[in-house]
């Protein structure tokens, strides 16, 4: 036979899932929270979202072009980073701040360490922490005048809880509260979370253990108060962080046991920061600190290979 056939090593078939459509699913899952944020906070929120995503994608393109690397912006990971960063911004922030954060996330945290899959911290969160330290005034200003409900004090529910005030749990669940663009509506976030779980993009393991640990921690050290504990869970960035940031593939452990350990560490750190830290919020710092522990956690939790666990006769 004259014709040449394709020859390769098995397996000769592959699943349909690609990196690109996984990233696309994460983008879809963030749409409910984004829409809610824009609807509640208005035009500047939309501007922040678009500008941050553009900044991330563009900086990835420019960096790869300058470094003569293959252009990978179509894999969707820069879009995801941009959206997560934008949803972590206060609604009235000047647009240049999240754009600067986007460049930092992509160039410093992701590309300098080798690009997709090589970063040891969640790029969006590292950028957020960078902005929190650099522009504390802008980043902690939630006194959005344009929002159509009573927020004269401008204090976020977490700050109110800190100050010993009661918060309205129903408002927390719906999202009628001040906060960052994407973190306010628990319902919108859970719709996205369920979407990701149903589509098997993420496993619920890390988020549930994380939230569960925070709940136990706050309940025990916060005075055995159920309403207070529930308010702490729904307020701030916990739901958003647990489902969308702690589950980041690159910066969370591969092993099942490791994911359990990781979830517990996240919960303990978040609870500690929230109860006794300098700021009422603690999710971002808890996640990036735990990111650093991932290689160690993985090393300590390697699974026992099949048949290596001793005879079960």
């Amino acid at each position: 036979m004259g014709k040449l056939f394709n020859v390769s090593s098995s397996p000769h078939v592959r699943d349909r899932i690609t990196t690109q459509n996984l990233m696309f699913d994460v983008v879809i899952a963030m749409i409910p929270a984004s829409v809610y944020g824009v609807w509640q906070f208005g035009f500047n929120a939309l501007l922040v979202l678009v500008a941050t995503v553009v900044a991330c994608v563009l900086s990835e393109y420019v960096y790869e072009k300058l470094m003569k690397k293959p252009i990978t912006i179509t894999d969707g990971s820069a879009v995801v980073t941009g959206m997560i960063l934008a949803l972590n911004m206060p609604p009235e922030i000047p647009v240049w701040i999240p754009m600067l954060g986007g460049v930092f996330a992509i160039v410093v945290v992701k590309q300098l360490y080798g690009g997709l899959g090589q970063n040891f911290m969640n790029p969006a969160l590292a950028a957020r922490c960078f902005l929190l330290i650099s522009f504390a005034g802008f980043m902690n200003d939630f006194s959005a005048a344009s929002i159509g409900f009573d927020s004269v004090s401008g204090a976020t529910p977490l700050a109110q809880l800190r100050a010993g005030q009661e918060v309205d749990l129903a408002a927390l669940v719906i999202g009628r509260i001040p906060g960052t663009i994407g973190e306010v509506s628990v319902i919108a976030l859970l719709i996205g979370a369920v979407y990701m779980i149903v589509r098997k993009v993420i496993s619920p393991r890390i988020p549930l253990i994380y939230i569960g640990t925070v709940a136990v921690f706050i309940f025990v050290f916060g005075g055995f108060d159920v309403t207070y504990t529930l308010s702490e869970i729904c307020a701030g960035g916990l739901i958003f962080g647990a489902f969308f940031m702690a589950t980041d593939y690159v910066t969370s452990p591969l092993t099942v046991k490791g994911q359990v350990v990781y979830g517990i560490i996240l919960g303990v750190l978040t609870g500690t920061f929230r109860l006794w830290g300098a700021s009422p919020e603690g999710v971002s710092y808890a996640i990036i600190l735990s990111n650093l522990l991932v290689p160690l956690i993985e090393k300590a939790t390697l699974p026992t290979a099949f048949g290596k666990g001793g005879s079960k006769k």
């Binding site: 990196t19 996984l22 990971s77 591969l254 290979a305 099949f306």
Partner: peptide, 24 residues
Amino acid sequence: VAAMEPTPCIRCGRCVSVCPEHLV
């Protein structure tokens, strides 16, 4: 398979959960 270009590992863990030998 021929047209598929490998891209970087994103550490999604799918291979870990399907491995019948419980490897990483």
